[in-house]
Amino acid sequence: MSSSAPIPLIPAAFGFGLRPLPLAPLALAIDLVVRSVARRHDGMFGRLGPHSDKRFLIDPTDLPFVFVITPHIGNPSASVARSAEGLDFDARIAGPIAALVGLVHGAYDGDALFFSRDLVVEGDVEAVLALRNALDDAEIDLVEEAAAALGPLASPAQQVGKVAARWIEWMTGMAMSRPRVHHS
């Protein structure tokens, strides 16, 4: 499940090419995924405890935008900005997008990313630890979460999304899905 390969980086030219794109569609997608995660994994809030109202700045260092996520039970929210400048947040979690996505999927160990400096945290460290542990226990798969947000289209969307995720994983080395585990 764990990967010891170097963290893949988005090529700088590709990241530069994303700069002119409008943020609204991305903001909508992120908000849908965050709401889906909060709805389908409400056990996370027990682990987040008093930190569920904190504002987490997620900073993919190889992409030209950042996210601010507030898990808040009952009313989770997410927004997107071009940079962290001027944003109000409690904690910042920064690293290549592959590290951040791989962390959510359980492909990487957060402490190991921290040791290697692939991941940097600032601000409320207690809140970051609570979030990391809550996400790790929730065994989230972002494609499943995105598909679930589409209601009646969930099943076909998941099938298409899984194919796309496997293709992206093959092309880039990013951990695009949750490793298979036996739960029975």
């Binding site: 359980g106 990487y108 402490d111 190991a112 990391r132 790790d136």
Partner: peptide
Amino acid sequence: RQRSRSYTDA
């Protein structure tokens, strides 16, 4: 025990 399930598995 403070590490992730990824660490545990590996």
